[in-house]
Design a protein around this nucleic acid. Structure first.
Lengths: 195, 195
DNA sequence: ACTAAGTGGATATGACATATCCGCTTGTTC
DNA sequence: GAACAAGCGGATATGTCATATCCACTTAGT
C-alpha cells in the first residue's frame, strides 16, 4: 500500500522549496494581491516556475494553503467574541482585529471579498465567520446597543466600505484612517436614547 | 482659411454616426464601466470599429466627451449647495444627488475615483467639486453641525466607501442600501451634544 | 458623374498570464 | 559509489484580450 499523493514524504530539498514557496506566496500575495502570478511568487522565492507548478497545480490551490490557516484564525476570533458578555463591544473588537489583519494583506482582503471561486475550506471558514457575527449582531440588538434595523446583511457592506478605504496612508504619525471610519460607522449604527 | 479639424462640419451621415457613437458609449460605459472596449461601443452602436476610431482617437478622448458635461453638472450642483444657509444639509443633499447620479453609471464612478489619467476638463471639474465641498465642510463645522475633526480629506473616503457598496441590490421594494449607509456615516460625523 | 469623405471589420500588434516540457542536477537507497 | 527516481529551471507554447490600423468598398454632396 502506497501513500496518497497529498501526504507522500518529499525529498528534503523539495520540502524546503515547498516552504520557501509558501513563504514567498504569503509575502507576494500580501503585498500585491492574488492577481500576482505564480511566476512572481517563484522568482520571489528564488525558484523556477516549474518548481512551483510541481507542488501546486495552480494559483488557487496555493492561495488555499496560504490562507486556510489565516481564515481559521479569524473564525476562532469570532467564536471567542461570542463568549464575551457585551456583544456590541465584542463585535467592535472583532472587527478591529480582523480588519487590522486584513490591512496588511491584500490577498486576504480579496479572498474575503469575493464570494466565488475560493476553495472549499476558505468558503467554510468565511461562512463560520458570518454566522457568528450574525449572532453577535442579534445579541447586540437585544442588549439595546445596536439600532433595531441592523442585521447580518450589514456585516459584509461594512467590511466592504472599510476595505475601500484601507489603503489610505496614515496622516502624520497617527494610526490609519480606516480605524476612524470604522468607529464612525459603528457609532452611526448605535441605538440612541430617544429624543 | 480652413476650419480646424475639431470644428470641421461633418457629412450628414458622419455626424449621425458620431451621435450614435456617443449615445452607445454613454450606455456601455454606464453599464460596464470604462474598461469596456471601443469595439463594444462600436457594435452596440451598430457601427464598425473603424468608424468609431475615425472620430475619436482613443477611448479616453471618447470618455472625456461623454462625461465632461456630467461632471460640470455635478460641479454646478456643488456651487449651488454653497448658496444654501445650512451647510450641513446642503452637503448632505449634494452627496445624495451626486451619488444618485453615480449609482446608475459605473463609468462616471470610475472617473471620479481615479485621480490620474482623466483628461484636462474632467480633472478641472473634479477639482472644482472638491474645492466647494471643502468650503461646505468648513462652514458646517463652524455652524456646529459637524465634528471638529472632520476635514476636506474626509470627502474622498466617504465617496469611496459608498461607492464600494453601491452595487448592492435594493432589498425588497425599498431604496438601495447605499443611501442608508451614507446616512449612517454622515450621522456618525455630526457634532453631538456633550455628555 | 465625379470625388472626397466615410465605412466596416479582418487583422496586425503587443501585452500578459497560465501551464508544460525536457535536458540537466541532486538526494536517497542499497 | 552507482543507479535511479525525484526534483529543478526557465524557455517557450498556448491562449486571451484590448488597441489601433489599413484598405477595398460605399455614399453624400456638388
Amino acid at each position: 500500500m502506497r501513500m496518497s499523493d497529498e501526504t507522500r514524504v518529499l525529498r528534503r530539498d523539495a520540502e524546503h522549496n515547498r516552504r520557501r514557496t509558501l513563504a514567498a506566496a504569503r509575502e507576494v500575495f500580501a503585498a500585491r494581491g492574488l492577481q500576482a502570478t505564480l511566476n512572481d511568487v517563484a522568482h520571489h522565492a528564488g525558484l523556477g516556475v516549474g518548481t512551483v507548478y510541481r507542488r501546486f497545480p495552480n494559483k488557487e490551490a496555493l492561495a488555499e494553503v496560504v490562507y486556510a490557516a489565516a481564515l481559521d484564525e479569524l473564525r476562532d476570533l469570532a467564536r471567542a467574541a461570542l463568549a464575551e458578555p457585551d456583544a456590541y463591544m465584542a463585535l467592535r473588537a472583532f472587527l478591529e482585529r480582523a480588519l487590522e489583519r486584513a490591512a496588511t494583506d491584500r490577498g486576504l482582503r480579496e479572498l474575503m471579498r469575493q464570494g466565488t471561486d475560493a476553495g472549499e475550506q476558505i468558503t467554510r471558514a468565511r461562512e463560520g465567520i458570518m454566522e457568528r457575527c450574525g449572532r453577535l449582531i442579534t445579541r447586540a440588538k437585544h442588549q439595546g446597543a445596536l439600532r433595531g434595523d441592523v442585521t447580518v446583511a450589514d456585516f459584509a457592506p461594512i467590511v466592504a466600505m472599510i476595505d475601500a478605504v484601507m489603503d489610505l496612508p496614515p496622516a502624520g504619525g497617527a494610526d490609519p484612517p480606516w480605524r476612524r471610519y470604522l468607529a464612525v460607522i459603528l457609532d452611526g449604527l448605535r441605538e440612541r436614547p430617544g429624543p
